[in-house]
């Protein structure tokens, strides 16, 4: 079986699914964040594959922007997690439920 666009898209979907389950199932905020990164990377893989098989460069440039936004997102998100930890002493989502009621 030749590695065509289909194989890359299926791989990307599987990677996205894994990240999705991590977000659904894990309780540690930091691990949830890592799984979000996994989902972002899966989408970039699909973009690069589409770009390669269409012979254009737009997907590559989009990935460029996604990388930048992801870096900014990680910086802000981790700062929020650290602030939360200093305030509450925990990063488990089970114990952070003040917005629930």
């Amino acid at each position: 079986m030749n590695a065509g666009l289909n194989e890359y898209l299926i791989l990307s979907g599987l990677l996205f699914a894994l990240g999705f389950f991590g977000v659904l199932l894990r309780k540690n905020t930091l691990v949830i964040y890592m799984c979000l990164e996994l989902m972002l990377v899966a989408s970039t893989l699909a973009l690069v594959a589409f770009s390669r098989f269409n012979g254009t460069l737009d997907g590559h440039v989009f990935v460029f922007f996604i990388l930048t936004v992801a870096a900014a997102e990680v910086a802000v998100g981790l700062a929020i997690i650290v602030a939360l930890f200093r305030k509450r002493g925990t990063v488990q989502v089970d114990e952070l439920k003040e917005l629930k009621h």
Partner: peptide, 18 residues
């Protein structure tokens, strides 16, 4: 995989940034 897709710059950026 990015390198296999001929996106060498993105492969390098992914390793550096991510």
């Amino acid at each position: 995989l990015f390198a296999l897709l001929d996106a060498y710059l993105l492969a390098a950026l992914l390793v550096l940034v991510y």
